[in-house]
């Protein structure tokens, strides 16, 4: 029973990671690619760690997995934010394609 639950969780997580990779390739610009790089991969990693934790017999290892998930939640969006910001500032973000750009009104965003 545990094995089945764990397998389902981990396979779903892996599928999400695959989808994130597909999104990275298929989305048109840096910003939308960052959407693909953050959401499904974060949830995917969460499912994989939970799936692994279900099979663990020792509590200590589950704590380590919990920390892995927690750090992903904190660091993933930060990385995406920094890449998106760098892309915007360098002009590589395909700003021209945006329907609205309220950031353009603020000519020089403070560092």
């Amino acid at each position: 029973m545990r094995d089945v639950l764990s397998a389902v969780l981990m396979l779903t997580g892996v599928a999400l990671a695959l989808v994130a990779a597909l999104g990275l390739v298929r989305f048109p610009d840096v910003f939308s690619r960052m959407h693909a790089a953050t959401k499904p991969s974060t949830l995917g990693l969460l499912l994989i760690t939970v799936g692994a934790a279900v099979r663990m017999r020792e509590g200590g290892d589950a704590v380590a997995l919990l920390l892995v998930a927690a750090f992903q939640f904190v660091t993933g969006p930060v990385a995406a934010h920094m890449i998106g910001r760098a892309a915007y500032r360098s002009g590589a973000g395909a700003q021209a394609g945006l329907v609205v750009d309220e950031l353009a009104d603020v000519s020089a965003p403070p560092a």
Partner: peptide, 11 residues
């Protein structure tokens, strides 16, 4: 960043 359709790019 982790919720539907939105991503923070500048603060």
């Amino acid at each position: 960043t982790l919720t539907p359709g939105t991503l923070t790019v500048e603060v």
